[in-house]
Design a protein around this nucleic acid. Structure first.
Lengths: 219, 219
DNA sequence: ACGGTCGGTTCAGGTTCTTGTCAGGTTTGC
DNA sequence: GCAAACCTGACAAGAACCTGAACCGACCGT
């Protein structure tokens, strides 16, 4: 999983980063909201850890703006504000969970796992998209009633599309999602996988926007 | 939304049920895990509220069994156990969230709303301009209800107009926006692209100021 | 260790679509 | 009425994309 940590407290951030890395996830750490905004424009994250008390603005506004523009990336709020009203406000602003400082790192791990499970698993056990019936939790899918099986990479790519149905995703974004940035190579891997997905799921599922990227077609 | 409330405390359950009903959801209330199991076999719930301390068995086992057989229905745990280890265990067993009794009914609502929001998924912000409906994030647009697709260059140009609606933009400015200064075009490229945009979006969208430039027309 | 299978990646040739340019027609300002 | 500015259909070049196939390496059972 790829996480974005937005936290200005260096000591806390380092501890959190190490814990998350120990769990096998990769973390981008930024200290300011404007930097975070840029990061999220360029990258598709699986989860955002958001400190509410930042030097350059209120985290809640950032979260609300995120939701307003349709971003559904899971967000866990990290905060020292343990007032009930603040917690409610956070959840209403679109947070998926929150942790009150000081929190136990083991609990952070558990919550990240929970959100990740939720994210990989979907609302309904079976979600459908056109003639596709998808069970993300079980990693199984039916296209027009026939079972199709995807490889790991194919699932990763397909999940990226499902997370933002209808939205345009650039090749760079998809590459980052699949390879966690650690690829500098210039190749047409994404094209190849899009091709394979189309072969398995039907040509209409993924649309090409030449020069821009790909998108999951309307159901 | 359809919720299943598993709770043996009559007073608390009634309060929770009323609160949820007031939020516009429908609730099935059961007191025992075996009944809950039957209920979940017969009905697809959007969310389960699970009390961990029930007379006929441990809620955690129920939750684990649920997850083991692949059910990903969101579960919020209601519990009096506020020990950290129990909370971690609950989340690791597959709970999506938990509330420690006594909890505030407003917070319950907020958490349920948090789940609901994720499942309905909010659409991208759609800005409109006259008869145009534009979704910049998704790079999609409708003109009088009909979908139109723009090429990369066309989007770049159109974005320049959208960024400064109604403001006059010289050809030089637009060229800079499209070509990042590094071009010495001696042609009527901008005219051509304005023409193409008009063809796709309707003639009234972009106005010509002869000798000066172009501007996005009033909506 | 060995051979085989499978998934991931790269490559190359073919295909499609964007793009910049031009030319000829149309409009506008004076 | 004239020239300058603008509009737009057409088009060639090539960028972007698609996809079958080869290659590579990890994993697995023997």
């Amino acid at each position: 999983m790829r996480l974005l940590l937005i936290e200005d407290d260096t000591v806390l951030a380092a501890a959190v980063r190490d814990q998350i890395a120990a769990d096998g996830h990769s973390v981008d750490w930024v200290k300011r909201l404007d930097v975070a905004k840029d990061a999220m424009l360029g990258t598709v994250y699986d989860l955002v850890l958001l400190d509410l008390m930042l030097p350059d603005g209120l985290g809640l506004g950032f979260l609300r703006a995120l939701r307003t523009r349709g971003d559904v990336t899971p967000v866990i709020i990290l905060t020292a504000l343990d007032q009930l009203s603040d917690r409610i406000e956070g959840l209403n602003a679109g947070a998926d969970d929150y942790l009150v400082k000081p929190f136990d790192l083991a609990e952070l791990s558990a919550r990240i796992g929970s959100v990740a499970r939720r994210y990989t698993g979907n609302p309904n056990p079976q979600l459908t998209h056109g003639s596709l019936t998808i069970d993300l939790a079980a990693r199984s899918m039916y296209a027009s009633g026939k079972p199709v099986s995807l490889t790991a990479r194919e699932w990763a790519l397909f999940e990226a599309f499902l997370a933002r149905p209808g939205q345009l995703l650039s090749k760079a974004q998809l590459e980052e999602k699949l390879y966690n940035f650690d690829t500098e190579v210039e190749s047409n891997t994404i094209e190849v996988y899009v091709s394979r997905l189309r072969k398995k799921l039907g040509a209409a599922v993924i649309e090409t926007e030449r020069g821009l990227g790909y998108r999951l077609g309307k159901p």
